[in-house]
Design a protein around this nucleic acid. Sequence first.
RNA 1: GGAGGCGUGUCCGAGUGGCCUAAGGAAGCCGCCUUGAAAGCGGCCGGGUGUAACAGCCUCGCAGGUUCGAAUCCUGUCGCCUCCGCCA
Length: 421
Amino acid sequence: MIDLRILRSDPDAARASQVARGADPSLVDALLTADTRRRAAVAAADELRAGHKALGRTIGKAPSQDRPALLERGKQLAGEVRAAEVIEIAANSELLAAHKSLPNLIDGAPPGGEQDFIVLEHVGEPPSFDFEPRDHLDLGEGLGAIDTERGAKVSGARFYFLRGVGAQLQWAMLNLAISKALENGFIPIVPPVLVKPESMEGTGFLGEHSAEVYHLDQDDLYLVGTSEVPMAAYHADEILDLSAGPIRYAGWSSCFRREAGSYGKDTRGIIRVHQFEKVEMFSYCRPEEAAGEHRRLLDFEREMLDAMELPYRIIDVAAGDLGSSAARKFDCEAWVPTQNAYRELTSTSNCTTFQARRLNVRYREDDGKPQTAATLNGTLATTRWLVAILENHQQPDGSVRVPQALRPGLGGRELLVPTRI
RNA sequence: GGAGGCGUGUCCGAGUGGCCUAAGGAAGCCGCCUUGAAAGCGGCCGGGUGUAACAGCCUCGCAGGUUCGAAUCCUGUCGCCUCCGCCA
């Protein structure tokens, strides 16, 4: 939800934001109308409530012979209050619905849709092979690191086993991500991966993403698609102390995605799977710090990608591809040789106060007034990174060079050698 | 899964139908006193909405209900604690 005060004072900016997203600008006016109607309903109900309350006090003190008449008047007023409250409640829920249907105001994102991203920077050079490169699944199977066949046997399509050096490689990478996060002042978190509907709802994942999340009917719990969900809901309904700067968490969790709309896409290997591991950064900060914090999260992602010795590019995601809660989003996409393409490895979003307003996360201003905080998130490492690591560092014989930074986690090994091929 | 108990403000804690507009204490903040501190004294001291600022209204875990009137009575629900059972 966006700040109604901003909306009231500058509705044109909100309309422009909607146009840049390719979304409906009339939602802005619908929200303003609902806002006006609600304010009128509240004022009317307040006035009646005040009169009714005053009468109640009078009755309490009144001598008994005066009571019957006062009680009669009280009954009548109580009815009027009830009627006004029915209108008030309806106006409130109308406002809430309109408020929730309006996406965040964009902040600097290029206009347009999925194709209209802007490439901000290229880092590193795609490797040139003088042999036919194998894809990550060939390599992973050769190393005894990835087993999708048995994943399918045990759990179905888009499930896999990581084993041997595959499992070790993932741990080494995620452990490194956590160590780097710790150095940068993040508090490490192992969150619950099953959450209540209101946590899912508050982070905005039950809207456009609702088909992508697993739900356990018997218990009415959702499996999270990212630890962003529990980390955002962590401080729901709280007032934080942000005077010493942003509060940063690094969550390590399994992530679960139904991948409902992606039949036939990325079916080979572990690029798109139902379950994977991820280390995710999450920041709470003051709204005025959010843009700067966003750049820092991007820097932390880059540091991690650099440590993996991967070629990648950074894109400024276009407005129409932001999702409803982000005001701006940067993706880092690594080069995947066998696809001859860049594929998303990280994504960092500045949600400004949009998400925090839904979750009611605030901080105390210098003047003591609570204000809505800003939230940001960004990927620090995921299972998908193994794809880029295996493919970019492969050797002619199917072995894979281990990036320097991961060697300690693999018993010092510099090269992973196929067990069969 | 069964039985019982408890949810009041930053914390402790009073309050069983009407001046609750929530006592009292602690902590915190401001001031006085002091060389400084402690003690003492005086003031401020939850959140939301709203306002130019007031006022007003909402808020006693949450949601319903009863009543002219609910922190207080009723129902549901959530959380915490204790005991029993079951599983590890």
